[in-house]
């Protein structure tokens, strides 16, 4: 691990200002992904700003009937919150499908959104990776790509976004609240937080240097049946091959977002108009233009079958 200096921030604005002022700064909250990457020197921050003392760890009702989730709310606490379990079951289910009990106790809401891909070539500094070293190439294309993305990909990068939580947040129309180094705040719809790789896969979000996520807000509950179905290589503690997060209403309408198949939590609102026509119609629209490798082509039918199972479960 490269050496770094360290400070404990005392307010969100101070943290953001510090991060924009000090070169090579990174925020650290749970740290479960950042430290992992620092050990292999994929991440080499010169300065860490510990934001754990910022008191952003509360879940509060919003005036319009939703919830405001502090950036530092731990995954365990978010999944266990009675309001989330009752009104946003999809979010609890997605969180509980991710990582291990130990990691969920440490990992935060904002950190979960900003975690990096688990593409093995991103982690291996001996391999080319356009995300880690822009312009060096992509070893996953033509390499072992069974875990990789099938939509939203380019010739520069086929990495997935690994989060389960973000899939639920996307289906729930969450908004990401931030503070920028100049003290100004903004609210970013979750669908606009993550960038597609294009030719610049190293640019993963629309956040500017020093911009700090302070909260994630959920609109008022939409009811319906909430299901998060994750398909993975073992029953627990593995990343998704494919995951389907769905909210299905009594009349058959609803929302669907996917994990494990794209560089960001994947939702295509137009596909949801196809829900009365069944899983294949929705799946075809969601994965239109899919670009697979021989190793990950199975994900296309797997999405359809998983969605089919989810819709059947919602009806029963």
């Amino acid at each position: 691990m490269k050496s770094f200096s360290y400070e404990r921030a005392h307010s969100p604005a101070e943290a953001a200002a510090s991060a924009s002022r000090i070169p090579g700064s990174k925020f650290i909250a749970g740290g479960t992904n950042l430290l992992d990457l620092m050990k292999v020197e994929v991440e080499t921050p010169a300065h860490l700003i510990d934001v754990n003392g910022l008191a952003l760890d509360k879940i509060e009702p919003t005036p319009d009937g939703g919830l405001r989730i502090g950036a530092l709310v731990r995954n365990t606490d978010l999944a266990a919150d009675q309001r989330v379990r009752r009104d946003y079951g999809l979010l609890s289910r997605a969180l509980l499908a991710g990582a291990s009990g130990q990691l969920r106790n440490k990992a935060t809401t904002a950190g979960n959104l900003l975690q990096r891909t688990r593409c093995p070539y991103f982690y291996d500094t001996n391999q080319p990776c356009n995300k880690r070293l822009p312009g060096s190439g992509c070893a996953a294309i033509g390499g072992f790509s069974r875990q990789h993305a099938v939509v939203g990909v380019t010739d520069a990068c086929i990495a997935t976004h690994p989060s389960d939580m973000a899939v639920a947040m996307r289906a729930l129309d969450a908004n990401v609240e931030t503070v920028r180094p100049d003290g100004s705040v903004r609210s970013i719809p979750i669908g606009e937080l993550h960038r597609l790789p294009g030719n610049t896969p190293h640019l993963e979000t629309v956040l500017v240097q020093g911009e700090l996520i302070t909260a994630v807000t959920l609109p008022k509950p939409v009811g319906g049946t909430h299901i998060y179905q994750k398909v993975r290589d073992r029953a627990s503690y593995a990343f998704a091959l494919v995951s389907v997060g769905a909210i299905v209403q009594r009349d058959g309408s609803g929302r669907v977002a996917l994990g494990g198949v794209a560089p960001k939590p994947w939702r295509v609102e137009e596909a949801e108009a196809e829900m009365p026509h069944g899983a294949k119609a929705v799946s075809d629209r969601l994965l239109a233009g899919a670009k697979t490798t021989p190793e990950n082509a199975f994900k296309v039918p797997l999405v359809q079958r998983t969605l089919s199972a989810v819709l059947a479960a919602a009806r029963s």
């Binding site: 740290g31 510990d50 291990s100 130990q102 990691l103 440490k106």
Partner: peptide, 29 residues
């Protein structure tokens, strides 16, 4: 494993179990 995959480093911090390999000591004042 020293990367949060095996759980051998599990300790209980403020009542919660965590992977002690994936957190910095200075973060636990």
């Amino acid at each position: 494993c020293d990367q949060g995959q095996c759980g051998a480093c599990t300790v209980i911090v403020d009542g919660r179990r965590i992977n002690s390999c994936l957190t910095l000591a200075v973060m636990h004042e």
